[in-house]
Design a binder for these strands. Structure first.
Lengths: 238, 238
DNA sequence: GGGGAGAGATGCCGC
DNA sequence: GCGGCATTTCTCCCC
């Protein structure tokens, strides 16, 4: 098994893809060992290392970017010694099924719609989604009151804190809302602040907690492609 | 560009690795578009699909396992149509740099030491880490009191709830401890329950919250390889 | 650099 | 199936 091809590719900024039968030992934030089996090994331009088994969505082992990788031959085996400041990993390859390295050009970033922030924008622009007479003051996540999604007054000039969740709201969302509402009460020096969870749905236990605190729930789903871009005729792929 | 090789590999349980210049459109839990660039595309035996850019640790796009993937030719382009119950993705390949498919055998599972559960076991077996006279009753995470890491009595027969964190404990850990302690008070019908955070360290704001609730902090780190396995001479790689 | 919070989070376990 | 929670979470943003 020839280490020189691997070593040469590591010296460039090429992306390396290997398939190999190997074992993996890791020591760092935790410690782990993975017995011998076939895996895909990827080493990226930024020296991120990923090890994937034939099934499953997440890498079974990995090293973060800026990892120093050295190659050595141990008889028939190839040994990858991988280190960064706080972690180290040893990959022992008993058989290299295939090896590929190449330059890759990619300057694109993902354009994404449907996040929690998009929900905030939608509610800010359509305050009646919360209720008639709701007047948003801000939708900045980082105000002096904290990371509040939407913040405003109701028709009776009572402060309203809205916490958006793109998925089903759970007890943690309710606790988050409570922290914000309490902070607003302190900062503004008012005795009463309304709290509203805006999410597609809320779990039963979270609804119970919400009722205990006297807060409210509005069933609102995150915006989708068509809803957001129809009016301006824009499209994500244009 | 030949779609038949891709189609044939998709019909097997082989793992596919490609390098290609492509665009990616996704619609499902959110919606996204990624402009043209070079990426590594992996399709696993379980029909998990991963798309990796030349830098970064997480896939820029992906589909979960059991995704149905169809290949079509559109002039010089190759189009991958990927669908599951709730999501769909279209990958348009303008240039296929390389293509590889192979059978992969891997039955190994990761052996890992240093998790939160390992901390629970360590404390259960060495209760003096909390304090002299501490007597653990259980270390099951899923009791009728909730997912309590370690649960026991102190030297004065007062109930103690211990919440372990392998990293610095934050305010969420304190709130979690509070939920458990309150639940135990209710269930056991006692007026006083002690709460202890066991973690390497605690953030200042979390320490403040901890003090408000009258709970305590113990600086304890998750077990490492040697500490756990020294006594029995066992090793992770044996 | 630390704290706080979202994520197309993922994955695991228990009910 | 849902709920609760850990993760070598990762990532981003702000102080």
């Amino acid at each position: 098994m020839d280490a020189s091809a691997v070593r040469q590719a590591l010296g460039s900024n090429k992306v390396i893809v290997m398939s190999a039968c190997c074992t993996v030992s890791y020591s760092g934030r935790a410690e782990s060992f993975l017995g011998e089996g076939d895996r895909i090994i990827i080493i990226k331009s930024d020296k991120t290392l990923l090890i994937h088994q034939p099934c499953g969505g997440v890498p079974i082992n990995y090293m973060r970017d800026n990892t120093s990788i050295k190659v050595a031959e141990d008889g028939q085996r190839l040994v990858l010694d991988c280190r960064n400041e706080k972690e180290c990993m040893t990959i022992i390859i008993s058989r290299l099924h295939f090896f590929h390295s190449q330059e890759m050009q990619d300057s694109q970033k993902l354009q994404l719609v449907g996040s929690e922030k998009d929900m905030s924008v939608m509610i800010y622009n359509n305050p009646s989604l919360i209720e008639a007479g709701f007047t948003p003051l801000s939708m900045e996540e980082h105000t002096r009151f904290g990371f509040i999604d939407v913040f405003g007054y109701d028709r009776n000039n009572v402060l309203v804190v809205v916490e958006c969740k793109r998925y089903a709201a759970d007890h943690k969302a309710v606790e988050q809302l409570r922290r914000y509402a309490e902070k607003v009460k302190q900062t503004k020096g008012v005795s009463s602040v309304r709290g509203v969870i805006a999410a597609p749905r809320i779990s039963p236990s979270a609804a119970e907690l919400l009722a205990q605190f006297g807060y409210e729930f509005r069933s609102i789903s995150p915006p989708r492609y068509m809803e957001k871009y129809d009016s301006s005729q824009r499209r994500l792929d244009l």
